[in-house]
Computed example of a mutant assay.
Amino acid sequence: MADDNLISPNEAEIEFLNLAYNKFYDIYDDVFTDEFWDKDEFYRFSKVKMVFSIYAEIINYEPLRWTIKLIKDNRPPMEAEIASDLFKFIRNILAHFPFFDTWNSVWINSLLVNWYKKGLTIDKFLIKYEGHKEIKYRYWEEKRKLMTNITISFPKKYSGGAQVYLKDILTEKEGVKFALILMKKVLNTQVEEVTERN
């Protein structure tokens, strides 16, 4: 008897998920090399923009939405919000304001965010989390035998045109590594096996 709770991806989902997962893992592996951080800022920024876009698309897959709900119900406070709301927020900034060449140069304010229409997703996120207390995490890098502590900070001020820098929310190196680790944790819930490609 089949388990009614299991959903197999359809043909289109398999096509998309294979491409998306493969590219995500490629970038993930690249980010966790020392050579990646020796490359110029624009190269790093391009890869990071790509990985946030891929993740934002993949989590539209229904079983991953269930995973986010499970995280919300069973993991420490704010982990689900970071794995969904924060990462989508970052993806939206990078996609909708493609004026910047490096992570550390990305900024927005309420005027820029609402240039077209008020109350869209970036604006909603910033209003909701303005002044929210910072969140501290740590992660372990097995290859480097290194534990890293990071802080995710939310804007103290957003309304009234205050500039909000992405680097002040999540740092480029340690913050991006943390983001990819959490993304991979979410994505791996749908992986049955990983094989090396040639």
Rank of each mutant, 00 (worst) to 15 (best):
R197A: 15
N10F: 01
D73T: 07
D73N: 06
E172H: 13
K23S: 15
I58N: 12
I68G: 07
A179D: 01
T33W: 10
E41D: 13
L86K: 09
S8K: 01
K177H: 12
P76R: 15
E62W: 02
T195F: 09
E57C: 02
W103K: 04
S46N: 14
A20F: 12
Y139D: 09
V106L: 06
L64I: 04
D29W: 00
A83W: 00
E196H: 09
K49I: 06
E15R: 15
R65P: 04
I93D: 08
E134M: 06
K177L: 04
Y165C: 06
I90H: 02
T148L: 00
N92D: 15
L170I: 13
A56H: 00
R75D: 15
L19G: 14
G160H: 10
N10D: 13
L126E: 02
D29S: 09
H132M: 14
F99M: 12
V191G: 07
V176C: 07
N22V: 07
Y43E: 08
L180H: 01
K173N: 13
K133H: 15
D3K: 06
K118Q: 15
L170R: 09
N198M: 03
V31I: 02
E142C: 07
D123M: 02
K69I: 12
E57W: 02
V106Y: 11
L170C: 11
D34M: 06
P77L: 14
M78K: 11
I93N: 05
E79M: 07
I108Q: 04
S46C: 11
H132I: 02
D85F: 05
N18Q: 13
E130G: 03
R91S: 15
W115S: 14
E15M: 11
V164D: 10
T195C: 04
M1A: 10
G175H: 09
E141S: 08
V194W: 11
F42P: 00
D38S: 02
I127Y: 04
F154D: 05
L6M: 05
I122N: 08
I82S: 05
T102F: 03
Q190H: 04
V164T: 04
D34L: 01
Y25F: 14
I58M: 15
Y129C: 08
L6Y: 06
I7M: 07
F87P: 06
M183I: 08
T189G: 05
L182F: 03
T189H: 06
L64E: 00
G131E: 11
R44S: 08
A20V: 08
L19F: 15
R65M: 10
Y61G: 02
I14Y: 11
F87C: 02
L126W: 08
K69M: 11
I82H: 01
R144C: 04
E193H: 08
I108F: 02
T151R: 11
